[in-house]
Amino acid sequence: MAELIDLVLLGMLAITALRIIFLKDLFAVVMLFGIYSFLSALIFVNLDAVDVAFTEAAVGAGIATVLMLGTLALTGRKEKANSHTALLPLLVVIVTGAALIYGTLDMPPFGDPENPANQHVAPRYIEESPQEVGLPNMVTSVLASYRAFDTLGETAVVFAAAIGVLSLLGLPKQSQATIESGLKSHLVLRVVAKLIIPLILVFALYVQFHGDYGPGGGFQAGVIAAAAIILYALVFGLPLATQVIQPKLLKILASMGVLIYAATGVAGLFFGGNFLDYNVLASDPVAGQHIGIIVIEFGIGVTVFAAILSIFYGFASQAERANIQ
């Protein structure tokens, strides 16, 4: 049954991808990319990779769509006609594809428990993490404790991406809302958005602090909270949104999150352990692990929220400026 559903979903994925290649209307392409993300997240769900599916649905289908639409508002809707011949690219693609397929011939069989990937560190995580970390969601134990260095790097990457976008686009100045923008004529939408946004924020907090027990965690919670504010900005206009969450505050929050994460690591050093060693944070190692994971997940959440929202502010302010002129 699961294989059959996988196959159907993969088929739909392939058809969507083919359609995206041949469409010239970039607006339609962005929408189909949203569907593409939804379908691939469904495949992840079907493969039991719940945390990955969570991230793909929130980032790939939600934020990426919004940001690509923001880009389209700046650049225009139609793809430029291509005047080059397709012969050389076709050759390159065929050669690369053949090389990749040749490479897969050496890969171990799919899903075999004897595979190197399943023999290396995974058995240790599965057997030891209930005693060492004591969290029901093993993905969180691996991400936040065993691989805390990697995750610190990823958080820093998100932070760096936000800095990069902001240095190119710039944050909007916090202005008195002189120009009414937003979906002004959609009254029903405005009322429903007011009802929905608090629900989304509460759900983001649930995802943030329930990540130890179920799917979720800092990354997803940050994205969902940012999505709530983005919804507010879309419906009520950017000037009002910048009064609720000020761009200046976002700059501080983005760096605070990374600092909270790194400071937790340094705290480990002060208590006589290694960098990012949570065992020493409390008298009981497992309690120490719990404290460390909750604190760094909070740091991740704050950074991701601030980074994504400031990237959106950057795009939206440019789009709004282009719209006025």
């Binding site: 979906l183 004529s185 959609h186 029903v188 939408l189 429903v192 009802l195 929905i196 629900l199």
Partner: peptide, 20 residues
Amino acid sequence: VFLLLTSPTASHALAKSARH
């Protein structure tokens, strides 16, 4: 509750936008 709030709203906004 969430779907009952959002789905008709989205349809309404879409139809209104098309009319507009």
